[in-house]
Nucleic acid binder design. Structure first.
Lengths: 258, 258
DNA sequence: GGTAGACCCTGACGTTACGTAAGGGTCAAG
DNA sequence: CTTGACCCTTACGTAACGTCAGGGTCTACC
C-alpha cells in the first residue's frame, strides 16, 4: 500500500451513502477530474481516502452555494494554502443562504397574514429570499470590512461568474506556464534563473488576475503546498520529475526579488 | 378590460425584476402552462396580474423546495381549496431546509475545530445537511402528529417522487374524466345522474390515489374552487360552456350519496 | 413624422449535472 | 460453484432553463 496504509479506504457506494450523493455523481466527479479517488483496486474499484472525503466536503459545500463544477475544482486548488480562511468564507456564504431561507419564510408568514385579513401583500416582500447571492453587494461589504485582503472571498466572487470560455482560457494559461517550467527543468536551467523566475512571476500574475490579489508572500505560501500536498505534488511530478520542488524554488526566488 | 380592470398589470421584465427570475424563465413557465399571464396586450405582450404574482410565489417556493416543474402545477391546482394549509406545510419544509443549512454550518465549524486540533473529523458529521429531504421520515412524523388527515403534506410527499410517466398517466386520467363529464353535459345528461355522479366519484378516487386522501367533504371543497376561481372556471369553460358548474354539481351530488 | 433605445415577441440551439440503462466483471458468503 | 450485492465503462437522455437570432412595439425626444 501507499501513504494511506493505516487508513480505511472506502468504495463508491460507501462514500455515496455517507456523503448523501449518488454513485453516478462520484463517477462524474472522477471523470472530470474534480474528485479523483486516491487509489484503484486491482479490479479497478475506486477507493477513497479520508483526504478524498475532505475534498468532497468542500465540493458539496461549494455546490450547495451554487458554484459550477467548472469553478469548484480550480477554486479549491488555487486557495489550498489557507483552508481556514476558505472555510470561514464559506461559512459566511452559508449564513447568507440561511438568511434568504428566513426571508422566504417571512414571505410565507406574510401571505398567511394576508389570507386572514384579506389585504393584498406587498409584491417586493412576496419574493424576498428568492434572489441569488448578490455578488456585487458582497464585494462592497467585503471592501468596507476588510479592504481587499480577504483573498478567498475575492476569489469566490470572481470564479462564480466565469464562463466556460473563461475557464478554457485560464486553463490554457496555466498549461503554458507549467509547460514552460517543465521545459526549463528538463533543460537543466536553474530554478533561480531569470527564465524560471519570469515564469514564476507570470504564475503569480495569473492567479492575481483570475483568482485573487496575490502578493509574493501569498504566492510563496501557495507554492509550499505544491510539495506538502501529495495531490499537488503528484500533479506536477506527472509532468516532470522534480517539478513540484522546482516550481516552489522558482516562486520563492521570484518573491525574493520583490 | 376584464375583471382585472382596477389592477395594474405588469410586463415580463417588471415581474422578472420583482420576483428575481429571468424573462426566459417566465417564458418557459408560460410555454408549459405553469404560469400563464392573465392577459396579452394587442401587441402580444404578456401582462401579469396580482393573482399571477401570487401563483408565481407558490411556484418559486415549491421550486426552492426542489419540486419539479412537472409536479408544481398539478400540486398547486389539486390543493387550491385550502391555501392556508398549503402555506403552512410549505413553511415547515422551509424550516427543515433551514435546518439542513444549519447542519452544514455545523459541519464547517467542526472542520475549523479539526484544523486547530488536527484531530480527524467524524465522517458522518462532515456531510450532515447535504441529504435531501427525507420523505419517508417526514411521512412517519406526519402520521404520528396528524394521522393521515393532513392532505397537503401527503400530497407533497407523493408528488415529489412521480416520474414523467406517472405524470403522463395522471394527466390522461384527468383528461378522460373531464372529457366524460363534458360529454354528458353537452348530451343534456343531468349533473346528478348516475353517469355524472360516477365520473365525479372517479375524480375523487383519482385525487385520492395520486394526490392525497380525499374525503367527499374535501372533494366538495375543491369543487367549490372550480366556480370560485376564475382560472379553474376558465379551464373548464374552455372545454364546454357551463362545465365548471356542472362538475361542481356532480361532485356535490356524489358526496350526498355517501 | 422620424429616430433611438429599451422592451417585447417567437423560434431554436446549447448547456450543466447528472439519471438511467446496458453489458459484463468482482467479491464474499453460503 | 452459486448467488446476490457491488463494481466497472459506455452511452443515450433529461430538466430547466441560457443564449442568440431576427424582427415587432413603445415612448421620449428632436
Amino acid at each position: 500500500m501507499t501513504t494511506q496504509t493505516e487508513a480505511t479506504l472506502l468504495t463508491v457506494s460507501q462514500v455515496a451513502k455517507i456523503a448523501h450523493v449518488t454513485v453516478r455523481a462520484l463517477h462524474h466527479y472522477d471523470q472530470r477530474g474534480l474528485l479523483v479517488p486516491s487509489e484503484r483496486s486491482a479490479a479497478g474499484y475506486r477507493l477513497y481516502s479520508d483526504r478524498d472525503l475532505e475534498r468532497l466536503q468542500q465540493i458539496l459545500l461549494l455546490r450547495q452555494l451554487d458554484f459550477s463544477l467548472e469553478a469548484i475544482g480550480p477554486l479549491i486548488d488555487a486557495t489550498a494554502y489557507d483552508r481556514k480562511q476558505a472555510l470561514e468564507a464559506q461559512r459566511e456564504l452559508l449564513l447568507a443562504q440561511r438568511g434568504r431561507t428566513n426571508a422566504i419564510i417571512r414571505g410565507v408568514d406574510a401571505a398567511l397574514s394576508a389570507l386572514k385579513g384579506d389585504s393584498p401583500m406587498d409584491k417586493k416582500k412576496m419574493f424576498e429570499g428568492f434572489e441569488e447571492m448578490d455578488a456585487s453587494k458582497y464585494d462592497v461589504e467585503a471592501k468596507e470590512k476588510w479592504g481587499e485582503t480577504d483573498a478567498y472571498k475575492v476569489s469566490m466572487r470572481r470564479t462564480k461568474a466565469y464562463s466556460k470560455d473563461d475557464w478554457a482560457r485560464i486553463k490554457a494559461e496555466e498549461e503554458a506556464i507549467q509547460a514552460g517550467l517543465a521545459e526549463l527543468l528538463t533543460s537543466g536551467v536553474s530554478a533561480e534563473s531569470d527564465e524560471a523566475v519570469d515564469l514564476a512571476e507570470q504564475h503569480r500574475q495569473h492567479i492575481d488576475r483570475w483568482y485573487y490579489p496575490c502578493s509574493p508572500e501569498m504566492h510563496v505560501g501557495l507554492s509550499d503546498m505544491y510539495t506538502a500536498d501529495p495531490r499537488f505534488e503528484e500533479h506536477f511530478e506527472k509532468r516532470a520529475k522534480g517539478l513540484a520542488s522546482y516550481v516552489q524554488t522558482a516562486i520563492t526566488a521570484n518573491a525574493l526579488q520583490e
